[in-house]
C-alpha cells in the first residue's frame, strides 16, 4: 500500500446523509426520479414500435368490448333499477379513469411474487437508495393503458351532454380528485395483496378474484344486495373509485353524501398497504446464492 492512500475517499459518505435533507427533499427526489423512470421506460417501449401498437390496439379493443356489454345490456332493458343508460355510461366512463391509472402501474403488482420474491429480483431493489415500493411500482408501466383515461373522459363527456350536466370548475376539481383517489384505492388494494408474497413463498396469485370485483364497482351499487354494497364501500372500497363520485355528479344524494370521504378512504387504504409492505419487506429471505 502506498503512503498517500490514507486520505479519505473523495465522496465523504457521512456528510452526505440524505436524511438531513428532510422528508420534502426526499419526496421531491422521488418525484424527479419518477419522471426519469417513466421516460426511460417509455423510450424502450416506443422503440419496439410493432409491439407497442399491438398492445395499444389490444387495450382499445378490450375497452370497446367491455363497453359494448353495457350497450347490449341496455338494449334488453331500458333501465337498471332506476338508472338510465346514459347514467350507467357516465359511471362506466368515469370508472375507466382511475382504473386506467391503476392499469398503468399494475403490471408489477400482479407479478410481484413471481419475479421479485421467487426469483430474487427484490435484492436489486433493496440495494438502491430509493424506497423499495417506489421502485417496484414504477419500474414498468403499461403505457397503453393511458388510452383508458382518454377513452373514459370522452365517454364521460358524451354522457354528460346527453344528461345535460353542466360542469362547474368545482365539479372538475372534485372529479379530478376523486379519480386520483380511485386510482390510489385500486393500487393500494392490489399492493396489499402483493405483500402476501412476503409471507407465502408459493407462486400463488390471489389477485384474480379481487380483480373481478373491480367490475362490480362499475355498475350502480344500488342494484346489489346490502352485503355487496357494504363490501364494496367499506371493506374493499372499489365503490369509492367509481360509483360514489358518479352518484355525486348525478346528484343522487342517498349515496353522494359519502362521496367526499373518497380521499380519506384512499389515504387509509394506502397507509395500510404501505405498513404491510414495510413489515413484509423485513421478512424477505432472498434466494440461494
Amino acid at each position: 500500500m502506498s503512503a498517500r492512500t490514507i486520505e479519505p475517499a473523495p465522496t465523504p459518505f457521512r456528510e452526505r446523509n440524505p436524511a438531513r435533507g428532510g422528508i420534502f427533499r426526499e419526496i421531491y427526489r422521488h418525484l424527479a426520479l419518477l419522471s426519469a423512470y417513466f421516460s426511460q421506460y417509455a423510450k424502450v417501449r416506443v422503440s419496439y414500435r410493432g409491439d407497442f401498437f399491438i398492445s395499444l390496439a389490444t387495450s382499445i379493443a378490450a375497452s370497446a368490448f367491455s363497453l359494448g356489454f353495457v350497450v347490449v345490456l341496455f338494449q334488453k332493458a331500458p333501465q337498471l333499477k332506476g338508472w338510465r343508460f346514459e347514467e350507467v355510461l357516465f359511471l362506466y366512463g368515469f370508472s375507466m379513469i382511475p382504473y386506467g391509472l391503476f392499469n398503468v402501474l399494475s403490471l408489477n403488482l400482479y407479478d410481484f411474487g413471481n419475479t421479485y420474491i421467487m426469483e430474487g429480483k427484490f435484492d436489486r431493489v433493496l440495494l438502491r437508495p430509493i424506497s423499495s415500493l417506489f421502485q417496484v411500482l414504477f419500474e414498468v408501466f403499461r403505457i397503453e393503458s393511458l388510452q383508458e383515461i382518454v377513452t373514459g373522459s370522452l365517454i364521460v363527456w358524451y354522457a354528460s351532454r346527453h344528461l345535460q350536466i353542466h360542469w362547474s370548475a368545482l365539479d372538475v376539481t372534485m372529479m379530478f380528485t376523486w379519480a386520483l383517489s380511485g386510482g390510489v384505492i385500486y393500487v393500494s388494494v392490489f399492493l396489499l395483496l402483493s405483500t402476501f408474497s412476503f409471507w407465502f413463498e408459493d407462486r400463488i396469485g390471489i389477485h384474480p378474484p379481487f380483480w373481478n370485483l373491480i367490475a362490480f364497482g362499475r355498475y350502480p351499487l344500488s342494484i346489489y344486495s346490502g352485503f355487496i354494497q357494504f363490501l364494496l364501500s367499506w371493506i374493499i372500497p372499489f365503490g369509492f373509485a367509481s360509483f360514489y363520485p358518479t352518484a355525486w355528479m348525478l346528484r343522487r344524494a342517498e349515496f353522494a353524501r359519502y362521496t367526499p370521504l373518497a380521499p380519506l378512504v384512499a389515504a387509509a387504504c394506502l397507509t395500510i398497504a404501505i405498513l404491510a409492505w414495510n413489515f413484509g419487506s423485513r421478512r424477505y429471505t432472498s434466494t440461494g446464492s
Partner: peptide
Amino acid sequence: RRQYVRTIGVVFGQR
C-alpha cells in the same frame, strides 16, 4: 438501508 446503500457498491456475479 436507504442511507446506508449510498455508501456501498455491490456486484453479484450471478445477476
